[in-house]
C-alpha cells in the first residue's frame, strides 16, 4: 500500500511540474490572438492604432564608435568634448500607436488570405 502511494505521489509530482508550465506552452499560438485582440480593442477607439514592429533601432548616438553605427543618430554631441551625451531633461516623443511583435506565421497567412 505504501509503495503504491509513493508511486502515485511521484507520478502526480511529475505531472504537476509539467502542468505548471503548460500555460506558457501556448505562447506561440497566442501571439496571433494577441494581435487580433489588440486590433479589435482599438477598432472601438478612433484615435488609437495597432501595428506590428518589424525592426527597432535605438535612437541615440551619432557616430564615432563602431558599436554605435547601428543606431539612428538623433541625439546630441557635446560641442566642447565631441562626445555623445544625453539631454537628461528632454522629454522624448512616444507614438500613440500600440506596437506589438509581428504576427505568427499562421496569423500572417490568414491576414494575407483576406487580401485575396
Amino acid at each position: 500500500m505504501k509503495r503504491i502511494f509513493q508511486l502515485f505521489t511521484l507520478g502526480l509530482i511529475a505531472l504537476t511540474s509539467f502542468a505548471s508550465y503548460a500555460e506558457s506552452a501556448s505562447e506561440h499560438a497566442s501571439k496571433g490572438s494577441r494581435h487580433s485582440a489588440l486590433a479589435s480593442a482599438h477598432s472601438t477607439t478612433a484615435s488609437a492604432q495597432v501595428a506590428s514592429g518589424v525592426v527597432a533601432v535605438p535612437l541615440l548616438v551619432v557616430g564615432s564608435t563602431a558599436s554605435a553605427s547601428q543606431a539612428v543618430g538623433e541625439s546630441l554631441i557635446d560641442a566642447a568634448s565631441g562626445k555623445h551625451k544625453i539631454d537628461k531633461h528632454k522629454p522624448l516623443e512616444i507614438t500613440e500607436i500600440t506596437i506589438t511583435v509581428d504576427r505568427s506565421p499562421a496569423d500572417q497567412m490568414k491576414k494575407s488570405d483576406k487580401k485575396d
Partner: peptide, 17 residues
C-alpha cells in the same frame, strides 16, 4: 531602449523596444 521602430506598413514610429 528608446528606438525608431519600423512598422509592418513601412512607417516609422518612436517608442521603446
Amino acid at each position: 531602449v528608446y528606438s525608431q521602430i519600423t512598422l509592418d506598413n513601412g512607417n516609422k514610429a518612436k517608442g521603446y523596444a
